[in-house]
Write a protein that binds this DNA or RNA. Structure first.
Length: 791
RNA sequence: GGGCUUGUAGCUCAGUUGGUUAGAGCGUCUGCUCGACACGCAGAAGGUCAGCCGUUCGAUUCGGCUCAAGCCCACCA
């Protein structure tokens, strides 16, 4: 690099841009493996296509993982850091529908898919730009898309493998259904939402014609009622158990049954069970083998059984039925009720149960295995495993993976037109789209028929992304590396996808390979606004990530991201960002100082004689290196940053640099050389320990000052610092008294409103310092002519 | 109702394997232009470590309870 006097002010924009281009041009972060180095591979969350929602929280989460990546790279690991884009499935469809205001009934599936693909390409460009600006050291030659042929192939293979192993099955059952998205969904796709509703007391009739009042929040399901339940200990209803009741308005009989689970104090103590209004209904229906009177259609309207209300949407039907009940004096009363509903997390629509044929992966019966596998993973922070365990324990049903949508990974299966049996694609034919091809065998292996019906459903988006641990290695051509890259070392992600991405990955890796999907799991928290609220556009507290990086600079924003311990949420406050900016600039200025003094100096000459401050700073540095290393090893980047700040600001900048200025300006060449030797080595180590957090400014300094001396093309390819050897055996344990003395004199001057440069005529020290040893040093550093000890 | 997390300076957060005066940054205040840095430097003020009870010679730290906040799960008849 050309030798030029650095600009007086740190030009953050220009330098970050320059460094970014340098990394890209020189392919600094490209994966290469010699078969020897230990590998460190990262299974980064493939973000969704819609990049326009990115904010401080995303920056925080990706940066926190990236600190570790940069650290590991410098520790000598061959880092494999690919990036993926999740552009498949429902989230993408929802995004495209909204953005283009598309009514899917008026557009062909292929048209729609085209738009999805276009948006996907746009989205990945946005991400690439942002991550580059932020200094996320991804190997951009290794990117995947979850709708790419490779991803389709892998996730189809995984399914076929699961089918062969008996973990995948198809059945007709009441499944969780989103009436808006018109597809089956899984338990993990549900979210709670508080709802203010009403509980309606309405009259059934007993066989004797007496009123049986039942409380229900969902009168629209009346025509799917299949039983009433009472608690066997409830004296009011004991003699009714086994008898029948007549359903109002629809006038048919249902049995009255008993269950311990019925809360006697809730409502009237009589519970109406429908097929199917909620989980409880489903359970009773299953265990007591109740009649099936399915009602809700796939579009969320009442079906035929709804009588004159058939075809109405559920909420309309509810109002109409309540009106009729009221009119016929069958409605006794209404009470307000607050409860939470299970809604589809993608669209907020209350989930229903709809009877349909779907594909499932067995998970509900193997909770023990999932818990065991979970415990084998290293959780950072450790307590987050509780969230996983709680989720596993709350699983009620197998994982429904078929979606009645068209943008996604197709199911690799046909059904025999004659015998109806599923015929899976051959592994060597993958990827396949059954709608565009036929089974390669040509005929059904069971009945020899040659007619097939292709499966139209696509896979749950998580059924693909849960394959990323074994998809990643497929991007590498070297065979040995492939084998070594599975399972990946680290998975970093935010806590809300523990129950989806992490859990499903554990399931898939277990079924497919009897392996863990990753070794370490880093769970990040959320970025919050200044008041501690979630960041959301509708709250008006949203600042785009592009703007954040642009306004504050990558190093500064990254520094902010160290502010939260792993797993904790972090508020974004523009004022808080200051410290990062100051640190960046301070590093820059120390580099200028060093460069100024190095101009006429060759470091090829000998070391000089180290003096007490030199030994002291090296000792301090060595302690710091150890602490920072330990902290990064434990993924506690916040602690690492604290340690380096403490050394750099309080030891190096505030003290050491002040201690040595007189020696640098002085005539004693031996002393001067000792300073320069110490300073270059110490500062190089400082640059290196800051490199994972502030990669831009440290690289710039490395390039201008250290590149030729340290011998690496980039700081980020250089070796992590080891503690420096100290040749001298001089005991300097009393030097901290000298430091105290300096502080004392500084304080004295400050109290007297004097400049630190002001030379005191006389000063009597309170600090017990060895003046014979450090008197000269103190007189020069603290600027006192006559220095003595207080008597 | 259950689980997890959090509660420390005005604000954002460290910390304490139980031990003299509890730390940082931001903010505030007082000063200071020494050849790295005013995007700076030196200093100061500011805390019943949420509350109560226990264990202990000693508790901010350990245990129990209470209160408050956040997240998740359950409740949805």
């Amino acid at each position: 690099m050309e030798k030029k006097e650095p600009a007086k002010q740190y030009d953050r924009l220009a330098i970050e841009k320059k460094i970014q281009e340098f990394w890209e041009k020189e392919k600094i972060f490209e994966f290469s493996w010699d078969g020897q180095k230990p590998l460190f591979s990262v299974d980064t969350p493939p973000p969704y296509v819609s990049a326009d929602h990115l904010h401080a929280g995303h920056i925080m989460s990706y940066a926190q993982a990236e600190f570790i990546v940069r650290y590991k790279r410098m520790r000598g690991f061959a880092v494999f850091y690919p990036m993926g884009f999740d552009d498949n499935g429902l989230p993408t469809e929802r995004f495209v529908e909204k953005k283009y205001k598309i009514d899917k009934s008026r557009i062909s599936p292929s048209e729609f898919v085209k738009i999805c693909l276009k948006e996907t390409a746009l989205g990945s460009q946005t991400y690439k730009k942002l991550w580059n600006n932020l200094g996320i050291s991804v190997d951009w030659s290794k990117t995947y898309s979850t709708i790419s042929p490779l991803a389709i192939k892998i996730s189809q293979w995984s399914l076929i493998d699961l089918y062969k192993k008996g973990a995948l099955y198809r059945k007709e059952a009441p499944v969780l259904w989103c009436p808006l998205c018109r597809t089956a969904i899984a338990q993990a796709d549900l979210e709670d939402q508080e709802e203010k509703s009403r509980i309606n007391y309405l009259n059934f009739k007993s066989e004797e014609g007496k009123n049986l009042t039942v409380a229900t929040t969902r009168p629209e399901l009346l025509s799917s009622c299949v039983a009433l339940y009472a608690n066997p200990r409830d004296k009011r209803y004991q003699k009714l158990i086994g008898a029948k009741a007549r359903v109002p308005l629809f006038d048919y009989e249902v049995p009255i049954r008993q269950s311990e689970k019925v809360e006697m104090t809730f409502g009237t103590g009589l519970m109406m069970v429908c097929t199917w209004g909620d989980k409880e209904d489903l359970e009773k229906w299953q265990t007591d083998k109740l009649e099936t009177r399915s009602l809700i259609e796939e579009d969320g309207r009442l079906g035929e059984r709804g009588g004159k209300w058939a075809g109405l949407k559920l909420n309309k039907a509810r109002e109409a039925i309540i009106a009729e009940l009221r009119e016929k004096k069958l409605l006794i009363k209404q009470e307000p009720l607050e409860h939470s509903l299970n809604v589809h997390e993608r669209c907020g629509t209350p989930a229903e149960f709809v009877l349909s044929q779907q594909w499932f992966i067995k998970i509900a019966d193997q909770k023990k295995i999932w818990l065991e596998q979970g415990r084998k993973i290293n959780w950072y922070p450790e307590y987050k495993i509780k969230e996983y365990e709680m989720w596993v324990n709350s699983i009620k049903w197998d994982w429904c993976i078929s979606r009645q949508r068209y943008y996604g990974v197709p199911f690799p299966v046909w059904y025999c037109a004659k015998c109806g049996k599923p015929i899976f694609a051959e592994v060597q034919d993958l990827p396949v789209n059954p709608q565009e091809s036929r089974p390669s065998a040509g005929k059904c292996p069971y009945c020899e028929s040659a007619e097939f019906i292709p499966e139209k459903d696509v896979l749950d988006t998580w059924a693909t992304s849960s394959c990323t641990p074994f998809l990643l290695k497929e991007m590498v051509s070297e065979k040995d590396a492939r084998a070594a890259l599975y399972p990946p070392t680290l998975r970093p992600n935010a806590f809300e996808i523990i129950r989806t991405w992490d859990f499903y990955s554990i399931v898939k890796s277990y079924y497919n390979f009897r392996e863990l999907p990753f070794r370490d799991l880093m769970i990040s928290g959320h970025g919050l606004d200044e008041q501690g609220r979630k960041i959301a556009k509708r709250l008006g507290n949203y600042i785009s990530s592009d703007k954040l990086v642009e306004d504050y600079g990558a190093d500064t924003i990254r520094y902010w991201a160290t502010g939260a311990m792993l797993g904790q949420s972090l508020r974004f406050n523009p004022l808080e960002v200051k410290k990062g900016k100051r640190t960046t600039i301070k590093l820059w200025n120390v580099a200028r100082f060093l460069k100024m003094n190095l101009q006429d100096f060759s470091l090829d000459s000998e070391e000089g004689k180290l003096e007490a401050p030199d030994i002291w700073i090296i000792q301090e540095l060595n302690q710091t290196i150890k602490k920072v290393t330990r902290a990064f090893d434990a993924y506690t980047y916040a602690k690492a940053r604290d340690e380096m700040d403490d050394f750099f600001w309080s030891k190096l900048a505030d003290y050491y640099l002040e201690f040595v200025k007189y020696r640098l300006a002085g005539k004693d060449e031996t002393s001067r050389r000792a300073v320069l030797f110490t300073l270059t080595r110490v500062f190089l180590a400082v640059i290196k320990i800051y490199a994972p957090i502030l990669p831009f400014v440290t690289e710039e300094i490395y390039q201008t000052l250290f590149c030729s001396r340290d011998g690496q093309k980039s700081l980020h390819l250089s070796r992590w610092p080891e503690p420096l050897p100290i040749a001298s055996s001089e005991d300097i344990s009393d030097f901290k008294k000298a430091i105290e003395a300096v502080a004392e004199i500084r304080k004295h001057k400050s109290e007297k409103d004097l400049s630190l440069a002001f030379e005191l005529e006389n000063y009597e020290l309170k600090t017990e310092v060895n003046l014979e040893k450090y008197g000269d040093f103190l007189r020069k550093v603290a600027r006192v002519k006559n220095l003595s000890r207080e008597k």
